[in-house]
């Protein structure tokens, strides 16, 4: 089975608001999927449902054929789903090294393996020199790298990135894209939520478009550009 993730008609309500409404999404092994939609359309909520931060009111989430709907977030990380939060989210009073190593240590019980994985992640994201630094002394780009390193250190098969380009300069976005491409070539699948469409559309193979919690499009980036419905919700953006 080459579908690594299947969201089977999942719904999430917040009181009267339906943030995600009967959305079905499938991700293949090693795929690069874009997830777009206007503000408040339910992208982050969907990411939260996949990573286990939220539990759906209806529907199921399957990972590698296994029903993970009731699984806690940390257990999903161990299975191979990593995520990055929207905005910069790091432990403010822990040095870069521990920001990354703790996740590795939780997933791999073997301390040596966790350590060598951490060093690999620090190297991949060019953070070795900042290992002992506190997050407060890092630039937004370096902070993104810390988050990326933490997502990678647990050996993920699927990485969820929630607006990874936000707050970065064009050159820095280019760097992030380079790293994502390289990791993708090694077989890691990505779901990337982004508003910066001109970068995203060149990067991903497929896009899912959400609007008011519903999936309104699922196809190639070029089809999305030409879709009338997508243009309507994105009026003035694309």
């Amino acid at each position: 089975m080459d579908k690594i993730l299947i969201c089977d008609s999942i719904t999430k309500r917040f009181g009267g608001l339906i943030a995600v409404s009967r959305v079905s999404v499938e991700v293949s092994r090693g795929e690069l999927l874009g997830l777009i939609g206007p503000n408040g359309s339910g992208k982050t909520t969907l990411i939260n449902l996949i990573s286990g931060v939220l539990e759906p009111d209806e529907g199921r989430v399957l990972f590698e054929g296994r029903d993970i709907t009731k699984l806690k977030p940390h257990a999903r990380v161990a299975l191979g789903i990593s995520r990055i939060f929207q905005g910069m989210r790091v432990y403010p009073y822990l040095p870069v090294y521990y920001n990354i190593e703790l996740s590795a240590r939780s997933v791999f019980k073997d301390a040596r393996l966790a350590r060598s994985k951490t060093i690999w992640a620090l190297t991949t994201t060019k953070l070795l020199a900042e290992s002992a630094e506190l997050p407060v002394n890092l630039t937004p780009y370096k902070l993104k790298m810390v988050e990326l390193a933490r997502a990678l250190v647990t050996n993920p098969k699927l990485v969820l990135l929630d607006e990874p380009f936000a707050g970065l300069s064009p050159e820095e976005v280019g760097e992030v894209i380079k790293i994502v491409r390289k990791l993708n070539e090694s077989g890691i699948a990505f779901i990337i939520v982004e508003h910066k469409l001109r970068y995203l559309m060149k990067l991903v193979e497929r896009v899912v478009v959400l609007n008011e919690g519903r999936k309104i499009f699922d196809g190639s980036p070029s089809e999305a550009m030409n879709s009338e419905e997508v243009s309507r919700v994105y009026l003035g953006v694309m």
């Binding site: 806690k72 940390h74 995520r83 790091v90 432990y91 822990l94 703790l102 997502a151």
Partner: peptide
């Protein structure tokens, strides 16, 4: 420092 982050990143 950030419990949700810890849980969501494997701890």
């Amino acid at each position: 420092q950030d419990e949700l982050l810890a849980e969501a990143t494997g701890i």
